[in-house]
């Protein structure tokens, strides 16, 4: 009989459940986004309440989609952290209850490690080329920006991270000062396609190692808008596309510069991207160019596995299962939790 893992994710705004069998994805369900779209953004209070409402139906749907019954599950994996404590608790409690009721092992999963391993999610009928170890992973989302050396499925090391804001946060906050809707990333991406990325220049962070910084860029962007608005109060409206293209270029420049530096320093040319910002089209195009020039092999997870999902929790649970890495029932979630 195969190894069938139920994965549960509830670290932020989405409740999700997925089933992985012998390393292949059978089903993946995400609930709760509608609630947030209605209110624009991630609302923590709604988040944990919604998790409680969503978790049972979403697990039920994932099981049905996979044509599995409860007693065919070998182990249940859940997100231990990082995330909002209240939200994490809902997933952790459910997973513990499920493990206890079915008398199966419990597996705790690091959400960030799971984002990296999302690059290994595949379906049976797919022939997917997977990254080979060691590879470099650039993990970029609303809350995280990290460069990780991945030596093995469960052996990862952070070699660079943001010292202030995350890349996704930079997109969101720049969009906010322009009066654009949340989340800012996709809107900036869309408008940037119509603008000139070299129209405006913003200050670049001067950080020598592999760490990132976006807070100086955000401030430089704020001052730039303030000064231009003094001259022309319609400046944002008049130049929306050029502003979006230029700020996007500045953010992507920072990300690519560090990735290139990391690749040169480590000699690693297998490059994987993870996290919601991986969806940015300018980043994708520019990375493909770099890949050609530098003979990199580059990997992106499919979009719905780069944002928060449970398939990545289940695949990580699967590798932990193979390594006999289980959690005891007295484990508690951890809001701050590093790779």
């Amino acid at each position: 009989m195969g190894i069938t893992i139920l994965g549960i994710e509830s670290s932020c705004d989405d409740t999700a459940a997925a089933i992985i069998e012998d390393g292949f994805l059978l089903s993946s369900r995400i609930a709760g986004q509608e609630v947030h779209k209605q209110y624009g953004g991630v609302v923590p209070e709604l988040a944990s309440r919604a998790h409680q409402q969503n978790i049972v139906p979403v697990v039920d749907m994932a099981l049905k989609d996979a044509f599995k019954s409860r007693d065919e599950i070998s182990a249940v994996a859940f997100t231990k952290g990082p995330g909002l404590l209240g939200s994490l608790l809902v997933g952790a409690s459910f997973a513990k209850g499920f493990a206890l009721a079915c008398n199966i092992p419990l597996i705790d999963v690091n959400h960030l490690q799971a984002h990296v391993l999302a690059n290994f999610i595949q379906k049976k009928e797919q022939t997917k080329i997977l990254p080979e170890f060691p590879f470099l992973c650039l993990l970029i989302s609303g809350g995280h920006t990290q460069l990780v050396i991945v030596k093995d499925y469960l052996d990862m090391k952070i070699i660079g991270q943001t010292i202030d804001d995350a890349a996704g946060e930079a997109f969101d906050k720049c969009a906010k000062v322009m009066g654009l809707p949340y989340p800012g990333g996709p809107v900036i991406d869309k408008y940037a396609k119509l603008g000139n990325p070299s129209a405006y220049q913003f200050s670049k962070p001067r950080i020598k190692n592999l760490d990132f910084s976006f807070s100086g860029l955000k401030t430089s962007f704020l001052y730039f808008l303030r000064d231009r608005l003094r001259e022309n109060k319609n400046f944002i409206n008049d130049h929306q596309y050029d502003i979006c293209a230029s700020i996007q270029k500045a953010i992507v420049d920072i990300l690519i510069a560090k990735l290139v530096k990391a690749s040169l320093e480590t000699g690693i040319t297998e490059i994987a991207i993870a996290g919601g910002v991986a969806a940015n089209s300018d980043l994708r195009n520019r990375l493909s160019d770099e890949a050609q020039q530098r003979k990199w092999r580059i990997f992106f997870p499919e979009f719905h596995y780069s944002t928060d999902n449970a398939a990545m929790i289940a695949i990580t649970g699967y590798y932990k299962f193979l390594h006999n890495e289980f959690a005891s029932l007295d484990i508690s979630p951890s809001a701050r939790f590093s790779i």
């Binding site: 609303g142 804001d165 995350a166 946060e169």
Partner: peptide, 14 residues
């Protein structure tokens, strides 16, 4: 000793 970064997304850093 930890990296002190923005909690805008995480809300609480410890």
């Amino acid at each position: 000793k930890e990296v002190v970064n923005s909690p805008s997304f995480s809300i609480i850093n410890e």
